[in-house]
Design a protein around this nucleic acid. Structure first.
Lengths: 232, 232
DNA sequence: ACCTGAACACCGTTCAAGT
DNA sequence: ACCTGAACACCGTTCAAGT
């Protein structure tokens, strides 16, 4: 007798921590945050939703595991990218720029997880590798310890927060996202010129800004500041 | 016959858009994101949860209205602060620093709303005032239009995203927030020194960083970059 | 014109029962 | 040792019925 929960879906192998994390990552990538429910995950395995609790304490533990796996994927992509570029040509600023852009790209691939996890400390392997790499890179510049750590946090927090800002907008139901975006033209484009001159003068550019350029601007600004303090 | 829903609670005046927004802001401030439910709001008025729908299309409309009201409150605090400081002494950088720090403070006062709204465009009065003021301030420096707008967005997005990063952490249930914070000492503090030298060297500083200093570092870095491009 | 209350389709989670 | 399935206490939302 086949279960009703598994009608037409691919039957996956048995439940396990890794299998559940992989399944959740795939759901986050292809269907977004809304699909990240225990009932939906159970369905993917043709199992009851509550079978999940045999492998994770609660949903929060699953989210942390998935977010850390996302960090591992991102760091692996950075490593591959870094290894393939010519060795002579990248200094610490190029390295951190590559860290930032690969992280941004992977974060946008899993917007639901980025939104759920951007303020968390996973303590997992993926996060550990990032912490050590970035801290080591900034640490080599010869700054005092407190300044190393404050720049480390400025860099990482900007990475996380700006990636989440973008992911959170992408995560909205499509009609709501459209309505938000339309406000630039429909509201800001029709504000009275006398009281909102600067807004009216820039409304086309405001509507057209590409988020990744904003991200790059903030990251470059930070790297400039670090370089200036470090005299390199 | 008194309703069971209103046992011991202050009976508020009748429902209206403004009354509901004020009630939701108060709930967000005193009880956090978890209290922002339609059933809870109805309870505050001694009314059925669904009475809400006579005044707002859906919960999203309420969130946008509350977030914009939060922006109005923050801008008012900035205006008051700005007017009270001596007039001669503040240039555009001081103004934007004051914008940033008042926004940060108000965002932390309503962490639930900050988390829910940081990636949204409300189109409301509070947001309009911020857009015009910041755009005008950066616009006065004589940069080309596209650079004005990219720096505007870099500033505003950093403001929103870093405030939300902090608010989101504050919004976690207390045991989870504690567990996250403890990972610095419990996990990063016990990583092997050979493979994680930089992490181990900085673990105390990492645990002790104050988020507002990180915020200030990013904002100051951006203002420096703008000043350098504008030659002021 | 405004509010009520049952109902619907969801959540995460617990727990006794099955194998 | 692992999974099932009913149940619980929640969500936002719809809709027919009340006043």
């Amino acid at each position: 007798m086949t279960t009703a929960a598994n009608n037409g879906r691919s039957r996956k192998a048995g439940l396990s921590k890794d299998a559940i994390v992989d399944c959740a990552l795939e759901l986050a990538r292809t269907e977004g945050q809304g699909a990240l429910t225990l009932r939906r995950i159970g369905q993917e395995f043709g199992a009851d939703a509550t079978a999940f609790y045999r492998h994770f304490r609660d949903k929060d533990a699953l989210v942390l595991a998935c977010v850390d796996k996302m960090y591992s994927i991102a760091f692996d992509e950075f490593s591959a990218h870094s290894a393939s570029s010519r060795l002579e040509e990248h200094d610490w600023q190029d390295d951190l720029r590559a860290v930032a852009s690969t992280f941004w790209n992977v974060a946008q691939r899993y917007p639901g997880l980025t939104t759920l996890g951007f303020s968390r400390i996973t303590g997992g392997e993926g996060e550990q590798r990032y912490v050590e790499y970035i801290l080591r890179t900034i640490g080599r510049l010869g700054l005092p310890p407190q300044q190393i750590v404050i720049f480390y946090r400025a860099f990482v927090d900007s990475l996380l927060a700006l990636s989440a800002l973008r992911a959170s907008a992408d995560n909205l139901p499509s009609p709501i996202r459209q309505r938000d975006q339309n406000r630039w033209r429909q509201i800001y484009g029709t504000l009275p010129r006398e009281s909102f001159p600067a807004t009216r003068a820039h409304v086309d550019e405001l509507d057209a800004v590409r988020p990744v350029e904003v991200f790059t601007t903030v990251i470059d600004s930070l790297l400039d500041s670090i370089a200036r303090v470090a005299n390199t």
